[in-house]
């Protein structure tokens, strides 16, 4: 989606739909099942003391995606006729778990995964709780291991903050 250079002539658009009809592998299936726990998922309850810290991401419930907040994964798989849907989702989940585990207690935001061609950019906000030396080690370590597992160049683009309080948007 970031750069979809589609040199598609008007006459071939009809053809692609025919191709999509013929081969079920290439077709986007429309899921019409209702989302589970629509009312409570991704939403936080107000505490009595109003002292639960929320980041901007947490403060906006899921139905505000694309309105008040944007996606945490950016790739072309979710587009119409996109390729490698399930693989992309599983890989993204793996990257998220690996990041939060490797940078234990340091990741202050959601892990943002942006894919450009075969390049995976992983962005996150990190707390400055460990020494820069350790941080540099973790950076190289995560990039090297992820690149080896996913067989893609992986770049970690991190932003550091003093403490978790810097990312707090509001208290509820």
């Amino acid at each position: 989606m970031t750069s979809s250079l589609l040199k598609l002539a008007s006459s071939t658009t009809g053809l692609t739909s025919i191709v999509a009809k013929c081969s079920p592998v290439l077709v986007s299936q429309l899921h019409t099942s209702a989302p589970l726990c629509r009312v409570v998922s991704g939403k936080y309850r107000i505490t009595k003391k109003r002292d639960r810290p929320l980041t901007y991401e947490m403060a906006n419930p899921p139905h505000y995606i694309a309105h008040r907040k944007s996606w945490n994964s950016w790739n072309t798989s979710s587009l119409k006729d996109g390729l490698r849907r399930s693989e992309t989702v599983v890989e993204d989940e793996f990257i998220r778990r690996f990041m939060t585990g490797t940078w234990h207690g340091l990741v202050c935001s959601e892990v943002i995964i942006k894919r450009q061609f075969n390049h995976i950019r992983v962005a996150a906000i990190i707390r400055r709780a460990v020494s820069p030396t350790k941080m540099y080690f973790l950076l190289g370590y995560s990039e090297e291991l992820l690149a080896n597992w996913l067989q893609c160049p992986v770049t970690l683009e991190l932003q550091t903050v003093e403490s978790f309080k810097d990312v707090v948007f509001k208290y509820i």
Partner: peptide, 24 residues
Amino acid sequence: VITSDYCHASPSIRNPLARVVTLR
């Protein structure tokens, strides 16, 4: 000759739809 190239975020650059060739 009309062909389509597809750019997408994936480890592979292949797209099965890129094989379609139209001659006018």
